[in-house]
């Protein structure tokens, strides 16, 4: 449905998108993932014929964005990064205007307006001025205008930005329910969002394509080696970290043990297993049998987040994308 080949966009001083290629099959949901300034918005703008590419080609439903922009535009619903709202218009009036722009009229238009108001939960602000809506409602109206003409392809730039948790879930459900009959590309920095809604991920960083794969494959790639967090406590108020560490290292299947930090008689370890080995049971037994308390044992969040950070070459999960994702959850 969407076919991108060697797509490039150069600005005066930067190359925002650098030879990106990927494909999206009909009915799929693709997550477009990347840190700030990666070139997500720029790529989407090229797909929607807002910006012409510097080189490379992109086709939507078989139509080239440069050669037949009209045909492409007819088939696309687009939610830009900032919802394109006119503050002096009321919600229903605005949706009617957008519907007319997309070629709807009469009873059909009215039906679609009612439908999208319902679907995007904006029915209660139908007669409110757009300029007076809260950020979340603005986002929802933006989503409503994107789907008003029931387009084949939906391009959503950060569709859940600024929504409350309940609404985030509803929006994700909405997006998921649209898949199948619609082909959807959505951009986000929130990794769990991709895990929950998308089938396919395209990861870009600094304008370059880093990985494109199905969510399941990427997760499997991440799961190869397991990383486990352990909290061990001493019984009588003291604990020799180095002893514990040696003990843990001797458990079979463990490749690396790092002592993160120690508070009084409690110590925190991060244990990495060899590929494909399950070591949690053995670790627990080793700790308990040596007479220490096992306060906590859990797998470190090894998810897309880590793959993403590995792939984009950032390794401090405390800041940037990962932290943002974690906060918004």
């Amino acid at each position: 449905m969407i076919n991108v080949k060697e797509l490039t966009k150069r600005y005066a001083h930067t190359t925002a998108v650098d030879h990106i290629s990927f494909e999206v099959a009909k009915g799929q949901i693709v997550g477009f993932l990347g840190p700030n300034g990666a070139g997500k918005t720029t790529t989407m703008r090229m797909l929607t014929c807002f910006l012409p590419p510097s080189s490379g080609t992109a086709t939507v439903a078989g139509f080239d964005v440069l050669e037949q922009p009209m045909e492409v535009k007819k088939r696309i619903g687009y939610l830009p990064e900032t919802p394109p709202l006119y503050p002096e218009m009321e919600t229903a009036e605005y949706l009617k205007f957008v519907g007319q722009l997309k070629g709807l009229s009469g009873a059909e238009l009215q039906k679609r307006i009612d439908y999208v108001c319902e679907r995007c939960s904006v029915a209660d602000v139908r007669n409110k001025l757009l300029g007076k809506l809260s950020k979340g409602y603005r986002q929802r109206v933006g989503l409503a205008q994107a789907i008003i003409h029931n387009p084949d392809v939906l391009i959503l730039d950060e569709p859940t930005a600024g929504l409350d948790p309940k609404q985030i879930n509803e929006t994700r459900d909405l997006i998921r329910s649209l898949a199948g009959s619609h082909t959807i590309i959505l951009s986000t920095h929130i990794l769990p969002e991709v895990e929950q809604t998308c089938e396919q991920v395209v990861i870009i960083n600094k304008g370059k394509l880093v990985a494109t794969d199905s969510v399941r494959n990427l997760q499997a790639r991440a799961r190869g080696a397991e990383s486990i967090l352990l909290e061990v406590g001493g019984r009588n108020g003291n604990l020799e970290t180095s002893t514990v560490q040696q003990k843990l290292e001797r458990v079979s299947g463990v490749s690396r043990v790092v002592c993160k930090h120690q508070v009084d008689s409690r110590a925190f370890f991060e244990v990495e297993s060899q590929k494909g080995r399950k070591v949690r049971g053995d670790l627990a037994r080793a700790v308990v049998e040596s007479g220490w308390d096992l306060n906590e044992l859990r797998p470190a969040a090894m998810s897309l987040e880590e793959v993403f950070l590995q792939l984009t070459g950032q390794d401090a999960p405390a800041e940037g994308t990962a932290a943002k994702g974690a906060q918004q959850q």
Partner: peptide, 13 residues
């Protein structure tokens, strides 16, 4: 305000 993005990506000349 960015509304130009709506106009330009709509199927009108």
């Amino acid at each position: 305000t960015g509304t130009i993005e709506l106009l330009v990506t709509s199927p009108i000349r």
